[in-house]
């Protein structure tokens, strides 16, 4: 017996199988692609709306608005000053419009990830069975090379903003789900018991005790989700998402070193802004934990 070569399926069988699956999926796409596209259309509307808002408004207003938002989150003048300087430089080097597109994209993706992620995380925290089913799916979403799930997304939606958003959300939603789950499960048992003893319903326990105590952890998840959607911007540009990713892609293809570095740095800059302001917000949520007594 031959123990060196693995006893694999014959080439022909393998090809037939691939063709069968691909054909089935293509048929599915033809049959339902339009329906799916119309379901996801609101995402496009929202994204275009935010993009237009950021691009068409006078830059000074947008700058002030973003600085105000950063202040509201972090309450730190240092972060606000860093934000203003970074955005001024970005504008000066001609990357304003692309940056605004990327910010709009990340904002929409994060919003969708939160809307999906928090309820799923709650579900996992409440049911060990759901936890058992969803955890491996999340593992798969996080380790599967992102290019692989770009394929079906593109087959269904073609190139454009919506498939970009879907691809980014698939990539970026796991941390918020995981950390919502973790945050709720970490609520001390004795505190939950106290809530129980006072006659809280399940919903009251969730609203009054579990979610507030999990919130700092959930915010850490939101932070990671934002970082991951920014990282995905370059990949998403391959399927037609406009923004800072496109010039980077162009720079790779044509070996434009400076163009690549400038846009790369712009991505880094907004990543730092997002990161610092959401982290500062998370810290503020934990004020009550600043221990003065053991």
């Amino acid at each position: 017996m031959d123990l060196v070569d693995f006893p694999s399926m014959s080439r022909g069988d393998l090809r037939d199988m691939r063709i069968a699956i691909d054909t089935a999926f293509r048929d599915f796409t033809r049959a339902y692609g339009d329906t799916l596209e119309s379901i996801f259309h609101p995402i496009q509307v929202l994204l275009v709306f935010i993009e237009d808002l950021l691009i068409d408004a006078p830059w000074i207003v947008v700058l002030a608005g973003l600085a105000g938002l950063v202040w509201a989150l972090g309450r730190s003048w240092k972060i606000v000053a860093g934000t203003v300087i970074a955005l001024l430089l970005i504008g000066y080097f001609g990357m304003w419009e692309d940056t605004m597109r990327t910010i709009a994209m990340v904002a929409v993706c994060t919003l969708i990830a939160v809307v999906i992620g928090i309820p799923v995380g709650i579900l996992m925290a409440r049911s060990d069975r759901a936890n058992g089913v969803i955890t491996p799916i999340l593992d798969m979403m996080q380790t599967m090379p992102s290019f692989v799930y770009l394929i079906p997304v593109v087959m269904i939606f073609g190139l454009g903003k919506v498939p970009g958003v879907i691809a980014v959300v698939i990539y970026a939603v796991p941390p918020i789900i995981r950390l919502t789950n973790l945050g709720i499960r970490q609520v001390p048992a004795d505190v939950l018991e106290a809530a129980e003893a006072f006659g809280s319903s399940a919903g009251q326990k969730l609203r009054e005790v579990q979610l507030p105590l999990a919130l700092p952890t959930i915010m850490a998840g939101v932070n990671q989700t934002i970082m991951m959607s920014l990282a995905m911007v370059v990949v998403a540009s391959m399927i037609g998402v406009r923004g800072l990713g496109q010039p980077v892609l162009q720079a790779i293809n044509n070996q434009y070193f400076t163009l690549g570095v400038m846009n790369g740095l712009a991505i880094v800059a907004i990543a730092i802004i997002f990161d610092r302001s959401t982290q500062a917000y998370g810290k503020r949520l934990q004020r009550h934990l600043e221990a003065q007594h053991g």
């Binding site: 004795d190 106290a194 809530a195 003893a197 009054e208 105590l213 009550h288």
Partner: peptide, 14 residues
């Protein structure tokens, strides 16, 4: 009923 706990079990965020 109302209960006082041995380990206090206060709500830390309140």
């Amino acid at each position: 009923t109302a209960m006082v706990f041995q380990k206090f079990a206060l709500f830390p965020h309140r």
